[in-house]
Design a protein around this nucleic acid. Structure first.
Length: 726
RNA sequence: GCCGGAGUGGCGGAACUGGCAGACGCGCCGGACUCAAAAUCCGGUGGGAGCAAUCCCUUGAGGGUUCGAGUCCCUCCUCCGGCACCA
């Protein structure tokens, strides 16, 4: 209990110390009942809307944390939190129906302004895939079918066998007595193998066993053998596939291994056109399946569909089988419903009561929050029983509906749910009678710009988008996308490795702030590389920003002492405007490193050769320094005679585009693309003028005299290039 | 394997729609100040040839398009991040 506040305190202190300016009068703490009361409220809204349901599902189980993990939290077969290998269990769980929103979650990706890589990650994660559902009758039990999802219905005539995931419910029916022992041994072996191993593909031979059962290929009517193999996954599609070894590399490998028939049914157009009869074309397969899509490829060996293009044939096959109820077009998604149930202690209890008489009853809103009880032993046991399920005083409840004896839900919700809506609560934290104040929300949300790590690119963003959409549909929000812009930040690398506690190369801000001060440390971090890519933290580099800030300080002090005003030097005034423009644009695109470089450049000019800048030159500089080195900027701002804070009253300096243009421009002159001189011409000079001036230049002359000028390319104010042939 | 990103001086990194490659900073070299050092200030600093003016080379490798390519196209190599038997 005490751990959380302590770490929050440290983190808060570090943020404040680093001069990071949040509105500290608004904070959210997801573990505080004042917050999770509303997290439970959100659950209730989704429940009432039919977006939350309880269903039995195989779940990833972390034997070390003793809890259920989402597929995403168990990626690579390892627990996201502790790294332990994850196993499988069957439990009854609460799910949010995020899959109802897949098309909208995809469609909005077209207009929200997010980093391209994040958009791609979202799209990949949703994993939309167009194809068809096909049904194969069991040879032995004609009223049962194996349903498969395929993106290649056009290859149906090449389906020479089927493969089910070992966990597939039809396996028992299909398996013949003679094969039963082998099948159950394989199933057992698969279950024992952890997910990580199962999903490892490299250099692994395909394994599987024949069930002894057959299914009917709906196109050819042939009986084809049904196998089980671990390369077919229960949690994608229907958990079963039609295997087309001629046109799928995995099926090809499997068929080769077990001596199953390989029948090519698609061929490049050239081969088909050369033959008289498309239904008897032979396609030689070498060591691999024919999988690459060639333009206009045609079906072969496919009965009445032979000769059609693969695209057309596929549609026709689905349509023709569809008439018999054996096929339909289908869009499949990788995204599953979001399992929010957790059997650990920490987290908001799911506000549901089970009554023998009334069934599943939501906790009335006025009874929220359902408080997490104090328990002695909050580490979950090995039995899969939630911690709260052992706290009798917690789970004994009265049915809100009939008043009879009832039992509370003892699962808590996923912490991803806590973070899926915190930004909605943030502006409204001072209201305790409502989660989201309408006026406040209109004023502050949606989020203009969200900056986060790449690790949030999938889940956190997806879940908060879903919650926002659902609350929008329920009338609580006027917008359906939570973050208008999203930019990822890079990682700071130290000693050639990503920072981590185990490597001991973590940069502790306190240490550096003690040594160099917060402003220097901040400036260095912003300067060391492009913000969106991260960079290499090397302490030696801190000297640059340190000297820079101290020179800024010197310059401003000198300006105040001298007391001169105005813009006596037109070149410097121009540079000032150019710098304002650059810094303004750079901040907008998060290019802090170049913004700082621009300020350094301007400073070098302001004090070149011992020059003392004027107060008017220095004032905008200090304002621009504000976001970079706030403490110093504020101090200098005061030194400049301002009574109130820079951050309350200064306005961002404006640049005057008219001040940026010069009368004369420096024009590079090339001969055959090589720089041979630089000339000065009036802005906007015409080609004739530029040419004349250029040809007068000694360096240019030297290179044009030994040949003929065939051509001159002139880009006004940018460049002049003579093409000379000798 | 797939998706995303990146390869530029000794180092971190600049370079808008193809138009002076190396901004800015670190480091290094030289100078000033100092008894001396540190700090600070001034100047220099991609590589090669030359006394010099000047010339040649140079953005991971190789081809191409173009008057002109770090930037566009093709082939390839390397590194980083993410996903991975997704039917």
């Amino acid at each position: 209990m005490e751990l959380i506040p302590r770490s929050i305190e440290t983190f808060t202190r570090q943020l404040k110390r680093a001069g990071i300016m949040y509105d500290w009068s608004h904070t959210v703490t997801t573990t505080d009942p004042a917050y999770y009361r509303w997290t439970q409220w959100i659950f209730l809204q989704l429940y009432e809307a039919g977006l939350a349901e309880k269903k039995e599902a195989p779940v990833n189980w972390c034997p070390s944390c003793k809890t259920v993990l989402s597929n995403e939290q168990a990626q690579g077969g390892l627990c996201e939190r502790c790294g332990t290998e994850v196993g499988q269990r069957l439990l009854s769980q609460w799910f949010f129906k995020i899959t109802d929103y897949t098309e909208r979650l995809l469609a909005d990706l077209d207009w929200i302004d997010w980093s391209a890589s994040t958009v791609t990650a979202q799209r990949d994660h949703i994993g939309r895939s167009e194809g068809a559902l096909l049904r194969f009758q069991l040879a032995a039990v004609p009223d049962r079918v194996i349903e498969v999802f395929t993106t290649r219905p056009d290859t149906l005539y090449g389906a020479t066998f089927m493969v089910l995931a070992p966990e597939h419910p039809l396996v028992n029916i299909l398996t013949t007595d003679a094969r039963r022992e082998e099948v159950s041994a394989y199933k057992k072996a698969t279950a024992a193998v952890d997910l990580k191993e199962r999903k490892r593909t490299e250099g692994k031979e395909k394994t599987g066993v024949f069930t002894g059962g057959f299914a009917l290929n709906p196109a050819t009517g042939e009986e084809i053998p049904v196998w089980i193999a671990d390369y077919v996954l229960m949690d994608y599609g229907t958990g079963a596939i039609m295997a087309v070894p001629g046109h799928d590399q995995r099926d090809f490998d499997f068929a080769t291994q077990f001596g199953l028939e390989i029948r090519p049914v698609v061929a490049p157009p050239a081969i088909v056109e050369a033959a008289e009869n498309a239904s008897t074309v032979e396609l030689e397969l070498g060591e691999s399946a024919f999988v690459e899509h060639t333009e206009g490829e045609r079906l072969i060996n496919s009965g009445a569909f032979s000769g059609m293009t693969a695209v057309e044939g596929g549609e026709k096959i689905v349509a023709s089988l569809g008439a018999q109820g054996l096929a339909e077009p289908h869009v499949n998604y990788r995204l599953h419903d979001w399992c929010i149930s957790r059997q650990r202690y920490w987290g908001p209890p799911i506000p549901i009561i089970y009554c023998d008489v009334c069934g599943t009853v939501p906790v009335p809103e006025e009874d929220l929050p359902v408080l997490l009880p104090h328990v002695e032993q909050f580490k979950p046991g090995d039995d899969g029983i939630a911690t709260l399920a052992k706290a009798e005083s917690f789970y004994r409840a009265t049915c809100p509906s009939c008043g009879g004896e009832a039992r509370r839900e003892t699962d808590v919700s996923d912490t991803f749910l806590d973070s899926a809506w915190y930004f909605l609560r943030y502006p409204s934290t001072d209201f305790d009678d409502r989660p989201i104040d309408e006026a406040r929300t209109r004023r502050w949300l949606p989020v203009d710009m969200y900056i986060g790590g790449e690790e949030h690119a999938r889940l956190h963003l997806l879940y908060s988008r879903f919650i926002t959409m659902a609350l929008h549909d329920l009338g609580y929000l006027t917008f359906e996308e939570p973050y208008l812009r999203f930019r990822k930040h890079g990682l700071i690398i130290k000693d050639g490795a990503k920072m981590s506690k185990s490597k001991g190369n973590v940069v502790n801000p306190d240490e550096y702030i003690d040594r160099y001060g917060a402003d220097t440390f901040r400036t260095y971090l912003m300067f060391l590389g492009p913000y969106q890519e991260g960079g290499d933290f090397r302490e030696a580099g801190i000297a640059g920003p340190q000297r820079f800030l101290s020179r800024v300080s010197d310059a401003v002090e000198a300006a105040v002492e001298a007391g001169a005003t105005g813009f006596p030097d037109p070149d410097i005034e121009r540079s000032l405007h150019a710098t304002i423009q650059q810094v303004t644009e750079d901040f907008d695109s998060l290019s802090f490193n170049t913004a700082i470089a621009a300020l350094m450049e301007l400073l070098n000019e302001l004090r070149a050769g011992g020059r003392v800048p004027t107060l008017d030159e220095v004032r905008p500089f200090v304002v621009m320094l504000g976001p970079i080195a706030p403490h110093l900027a504020e101090e200098l701002w005061e030194l400049l005679g301002n009574e109130s804070s820079l951050f309350d009253h200064a306005s961002w300096p404006a640049f005057d585009p008219a001040k940026l243009v010069t009368d004369q421009v420096e024009l590079p002159v090339q001969v055959n693309g090589k720089l041979r001189g630089t000339i000065s011409v009036p802005r906007g000079a015409d080609a004739e003028t530029a040419r004349e001036v250029a040809l007068a230049d000694e360096g240019v002359q030297r290179h044009v005299t030994d040949g003929q000028i065939v051509k001159a390319i002139y880009v006004p104010d940018r460049l002049l290039n003579f093409v000379v042939r000798s």
